[in-house]
Amino acid sequence: MTLTQKLINDGNDTVDEMLAGVMAAHPDHLWRPDHAPRAVIARHGPREGKVALVIGGGSGHEPTFLGFVGKGLADAAAIGNVFASPPPQPVMDAAMAAHGGAGVLFMYGNYAGDVMNFDMAAEMLEMEGIETRTVLTTDDIASAPREARDKRRGVAGNVFIFKAAGAAADLGLPLDEVERIARHANARTYTMGVALSACSLPQTRRPNFDLPAGEMEIGMGIHGEPGIRREALRPADAVTDEIMDAILSEMAAAPGDRVAVLVNSLGSTPLMELYILHARVNARLKAAELEVHRTLVGPYCTSMEMAGASITIMHLDDELQRMIDHPCDCAMFRQG
């Protein structure tokens, strides 16, 4: 099998070398404790009396997670190896550095390794007298049926869900309220994607699944988890229609309702193709008489160099619109 080509040094050093480059590029936004190189802290986010929002997960999804650390969004992130959960210690290190005395909210995608390690960190923090809550993101509608939503994966919808929770924390709301808004945001966020090619891990440089040329997989996860089905690649409008049919059916919005939209690259899909998808998304929303309040197009939650895209729709209400509009200033995402 031919090895993939990557601009790296030693595959085993990829995450730490990436973090060194990130810290050198964004010193005004980020810092790391000397004893905790996998804990990334917002330079201007944490403050006394504020709920600390700590996110995290495996590397390889950049700008998720570390790119969303900054004032108005996440206070810290714990960084794992590629597609692997961070161990409990960097999670605890991130929380301790961000803690301002008002409790800690952990947010991350619903994956078994993340749940285990963040739960262990939460127990360690509780032993230190720090109240900790957890909200799992479960926006991937392809990964489990509607009646089993708590089993779904968290994918690109993280961007909107983290944004809402980060705004609530930045506004000085108490832990109960920040947790409630985070759960509310998650419940009203819907994502579905399509993969066109595999990605490869830096250590192996071999595709992590086999997807023949000319085929696509609807609903594939951001680590290569199986989707709904494989079939011949179809035109962009047809793919978009299938995704939007599924999202609109589950969202059950009324004419005049407002939404936020994300058309996300899984890694190697270029902006040209994303905007073709977005043209159809926008047409479908207009046909449904829904008002688009905010749109993001680009690589926001990637899967290394995987080709493909996902579409996320957040069903806004007045509260979520305020949270989405709240200013933030992160290393890789700014608003307001």
Score class of each variant (00 low, 15 high):
residue 42 A to D: 13
residue 90 P to C: 13
residue 138 T to F: 11
residue 200 S to R: 15
residue 238 A to H: 08
residue 247 I to F: 12
residue 315 H to Y: 07
residue 187 A to V: 03
residue 7 L to Y: 15
residue 81 N to E: 09
residue 175 L to G: 01
residue 306 M to W: 11
residue 92 M to H: 10
residue 66 L to V: 04
residue 13 D to P: 05
residue 197 S to C: 00
residue 330 C to W: 07
residue 155 V to A: 00
residue 276 I to F: 11
residue 39 A to R: 03
residue 76 A to C: 06
residue 199 C to N: 04
residue 320 L to M: 13
residue 133 R to M: 08
residue 73 L to A: 06
residue 173 L to S: 03
residue 207 P to E: 04
residue 240 T to M: 07
residue 158 N to M: 12
residue 31 W to L: 01
residue 195 A to M: 04
residue 241 D to T: 10
residue 261 V to A: 01
residue 230 R to S: 07
residue 185 A to M: 15
residue 253 A to I: 03
residue 141 I to D: 01
residue 230 R to P: 13
residue 104 V to A: 01
residue 216 M to E: 03
residue 168 A to S: 13
residue 171 L to F: 05
residue 269 T to P: 00
residue 146 R to N: 10
residue 215 E to H: 06
residue 231 E to A: 08
residue 37 P to H: 10
residue 297 V to E: 12
residue 260 A to K: 06
residue 327 P to W: 06
residue 21 G to K: 10
residue 136 L to S: 07
residue 321 Q to K: 07
residue 230 R to G: 07
residue 241 D to M: 10
residue 272 M to G: 09
residue 80 G to Y: 09
residue 117 N to Q: 13
residue 209 F to G: 00
residue 299 P to C: 14
residue 86 P to V: 12
residue 84 A to C: 11
residue 165 A to R: 09
residue 268 S to E: 01
residue 304 M to S: 00
residue 30 L to S: 00
residue 260 A to T: 07
residue 118 F to C: 12
residue 224 G to R: 04
residue 307 A to S: 07
residue 284 R to W: 12
residue 260 A to Y: 14
residue 311 I to Q: 03
residue 252 A to H: 13
residue 126 E to K: 15
residue 238 A to D: 11
residue 241 D to L: 07
residue 269 T to V: 12
residue 199 C to T: 14
residue 242 E to T: 03
residue 282 N to F: 14
residue 318 D to K: 05
residue 159 V to H: 04
residue 273 E to T: 05
residue 291 E to W: 06
residue 167 A to V: 15
residue 329 D to V: 02
residue 52 A to P: 03
residue 85 S to P: 09
residue 116 M to C: 01
residue 181 I to F: 14
residue 194 V to G: 01
residue 118 F to H: 08
residue 63 P to G: 07
residue 134 T to G: 05
residue 79 I to P: 01
residue 133 R to Y: 06
residue 195 A to S: 12
residue 322 R to D: 13
residue 98 A to W: 03
residue 139 D to A: 04
residue 265 S to K: 03
residue 123 E to A: 08
residue 75 D to I: 04
residue 152 R to N: 13
residue 127 M to T: 13
residue 237 D to L: 09
residue 18 M to Q: 12
residue 19 L to W: 10
residue 33 P to H: 03
residue 10 D to R: 15
residue 226 P to G: 00
residue 8 I to S: 10
residue 79 I to E: 01
residue 292 V to I: 11
residue 181 I to W: 13
residue 119 D to E: 08
residue 224 G to C: 05
residue 282 N to V: 11
residue 335 Q to D: 11
residue 86 P to M: 12
residue 214 G to T: 15
residue 225 E to K: 05
residue 38 R to E: 01
residue 64 T to K: 03
residue 153 R to E: 09
residue 191 T to M: 04
residue 109 G to E: 11
residue 10 D to K: 14
residue 123 E to F: 02
residue 305 E to C: 00
residue 139 D to M: 09
